[in-house]
Amino acid sequence: MPSEETKERIIKTIELGRTVLHYGWIPFIIYIGYTRSNPQPSLVKLITPLA
């Protein structure tokens, strides 16, 4: 059984990971898609709905 201190640390790490994923997941997909796309699209086209 892990000690209280490690438990606390694990909970904090999960909480931090959750926050990072929450704010970073969509930008991460866009970054991956933007850099791997063939041909590479323009940034304006990526963001605006009408272009």
């Binding site: 866009i30 898609g33 791997r36 796309s37 063939n38 041909p39 699209p41 086209k45 990526l46």
Partner: peptide, 15 residues
């Protein structure tokens, strides 16, 4: 509004 920016690999954004 569906935008396919690349077909292979697939990259798509949707509003």
């Amino acid at each position: 509004i569906n935008k396919t920016l690349s077909a292979s690999p697939l990259f798509q954004v949707t509003h």
